[in-house]
Design a binder for these strands. Sequence first.
DNA 1: CTCACATGATACTTTGATGTATCATGTGAG
DNA 2: CTCACATGATACATCAAAGTATCATGTGAG
Lengths: 195, 195
Amino acid sequence: MKESNHSTATKENIRQKRTREKVINLAMHVLAKNPKASLNEIAEAAEVGRATLFRYFKSRKQLIHELVVEADKKLENATKPIVEKNLNARDTLEEFIKVLVPLGASFHFLNSEQIQSEGSGIEDLYRNQLVRLKELSKRLQAEKVVAANIPLVWIAVVLDNLIYAAWVTVLEGDIAPNDAPGLVLYSFLNGLSPL
Amino acid sequence: MKESNHSTATKENIRQKRTREKVINLAMHVLAKNPKASLNEIAEAAEVGRATLFRYFKSRKQLIHELVVEADKKLENATKPIVEKNLNARDTLEEFIKVLVPLGASFHFLNSEQIQSEGSGIEDLYRNQLVRLKELSKRLQAEKVVAANIPLVWIAVVLDNLIYAAWVTVLEGDIAPNDAPGLVLYSFLNGLSPL
DNA sequence: CTCACATGATACTTTGATGTATCATGTGAG
DNA sequence: CTCACATGATACATCAAAGTATCATGTGAG
């Protein structure tokens, strides 16, 4: 059932890894757009049999859990290198947005209220994400990129929503993928007024 | 079962109207925060028996339909008087926001993807809402309140999201209700940068 | 080719939410 | 007070999604 003792393992595991990733990615997309999506719909979107779904995740609950963990990983991987550059807050923000818009699904998925209720120890990851966002917000404020009189929560929430909005509009074909991050950054900093 | 022939009707209808409104309001809130909410949860939130729910709405589907109709009414009632004032776009925007933030639930409910799939002839109302939003956006752009090079969709989407964000943060107690509309307007026009 | 194993398909059970029917209780109008 | 009617509670029926079990087929490694 597991771990063929000889070299077969390698190649086969690759195949499994592929389906697993396929499922995770598609499930994330589908669920981000419709949290009520049935496992049927998810399986269909991922182009696998429903049975296969259950082979990889013993329950819907666990699937969602894995999704969150995965989202967290993706975000971690995407943002860590940026943080390590030790840029100023403004440039960090810009790079963050560039990277996070395509990850919109993961990002908002993790931030979404829905998930918490489906929860199983997910709360920690969720809080982490919020903390990171608020920390960036704090830095932005400290370095006067963001006005001092604006509540921290509001900064974080606006950022979250703009990124998600960008992701959705891109997904629906209303905005060019390459335009989106610029729009977010600009809107976040300057709003929509002309100069 | 209906229509007592004498004056009783009046008073009784008031009672019914109250519960009906209570249910509609609470259901809207609950569903806006969690589209997966069961009728049980809705009934509980509205402090009525589940049976009563079914007395007023013959099915979940119909409940949602009524909710959308109601939301549409509320929005119509709230915005019509503003439009009739014939203000310039900028002031219209301001008044819109002031009025729409408290209606956040209705507003976003109507705008949300979820609803469409539950649909039953709801699409029209939904489209109406989108159209209205885009029209305002267009006016904003025509009167140079909003930069010309920004895509219409983006304007509408940002507005929607900021209003919804404000509603949520208020609901969670993170932002004072009276501060919210100002934050939205300011963020929408100027972003979060200091002057 | 052939063997091991991943997948798909299908049929089945379980579970939770939806929807229905009924009766007892509360409440306001006359 | 009393009657009509709205409500709550409960028990029950139905349905769709979740979860399980099984077998036939596809596929890649050796």
